[in-house]
């Protein structure tokens, strides 16, 4: 793996963001809209419930911030790929000495930068506006953050593979894929509150033990280590499967001669 190549690709995305500030607005605007809506709902529930529940209900805001870690990581991969499609640059990249792993690594790093921007802004606003401090999760925040980011990368590779397979007509998948799984990964409610039949499915995704863990830490200050191990183990599997899927689809598009059509359409 060549770090010069990765840094060059990251530089290209950084140039893009500095040249088109509207992309930065997108990173901040929608998360803030969500935060304000959920923040106000939280305040309303707090005022109309007992003190214990009222304190606990703040987990909505924590869930929202952590969900954005996953979502922005996924977007980092999928949108970076689409940027190359939209600007008709994909062919230039694929005929340059860029390995698939280098290309993906650059999009992972872009995902990390996108997370930083969004999470910093959301954390500040939730602290100033709703007295919710995400850092009350203390050191647990780090494994939560890492696991969600890695799962976001895996979802990003899956989204990109699907777009490669079905062409630009399927580009809405870049935004839709995370929301396919949102209802079953217990972001805003506990697994035990989900319909019984769906609970086993919830534990198939690495995000579920993380959101369960977040609520646990906020409520009791302790964390079930098994949840963390489960999330990490599942992430290894998802990352490997998503990487395999991406490479398999890329090779298939080469075999079928679709890559050039896709890159120049």
């Amino acid at each position: 793996m060549n770090l010069h190549v990765i840094s060059a690709l990251v530089l290209r995305y950084l140039f893009l963001y500095t040249r088109t500030p509207m992309r930065l607005v997108e990173l901040v605007f929608w998360p803030l809209v969500d935060l304000v809506v959920w923040g106000n709902v939280t305040v309303f529930i707090q005022k109309n419930s007992d003190a214990e529940f009222g304190g606990f209900i703040l987990f909505f805001l924590g869930a929202m911030i952590l969900w954005d870690v996953l979502f922005r990581a996924q977007q980092g991969v999928a949108i970076s790929f689409l940027e190359d499609v939209w600007t008709r640059n994909l062919l230039n990249v694929f005929v340059a000495p860029v390995r698939t792993v280098e290309y993906l690594s650059a999009t992972f790093f872009v995902g990390f930068l996108r997370i930083l921007v969004t999470v910093v802004v959301m954390s500040l606003v939730s602290w100033l506006g709703y007295s919710f401090n995400i850092f009350q999760l203390q050191w647990w925040l780090l494994p939560f953050f890492l696991n969600l980011m890695v799962f976001g990368w895996a979802l990003g590779m899956i989204s990109t593979a699907l777009i490669l397979r079905w062409g630009q007509a399927a580009e809405s998948l870049a935004w839709a894929v995370p929301f396919f799984i949102q209802p079953v990964v217990a972001v805003f409610y506990r697994v035990e509150d989900m319909p019984a039949w769906s609970q086993p499915f919830a534990w198939l995704f690495p995000a579920t033990p993380i959101f369960e863990g977040m609520r646990e830490v906020m409520k009791s200050g302790t964390m079930n280590w098994n949840h963390l191990w489960l999330a990490a183990g599942l992430n290894v599997i998802y990352l490997a499967l998503a990487g395999w899927l991406f490479v398999w689809v890329l090779n298939m598009t080469r075999k079928r001669g679709l890559l050039t059509k896709f890159a120049t359409q």
């Binding site: 060549n2 010069h4 190549v5 840094s7 893009l16 040249r19 640059n89 230039n92």
Partner: peptide, 27 residues
């Protein structure tokens, strides 16, 4: 290397930015 009338360097970047990115890719 390769150049085609049917591909483009990203239109939203400045010329020097595009060329610098590719210069770095090629080391």
């Amino acid at each position: 290397n390769f150049s085609s009338a049917y591909t483009a360097l990203p239109g939203n970047l400045l010329v020097w930015q595009n060329l610098l990115v590719f210069a770095r890719i090629y080391g």
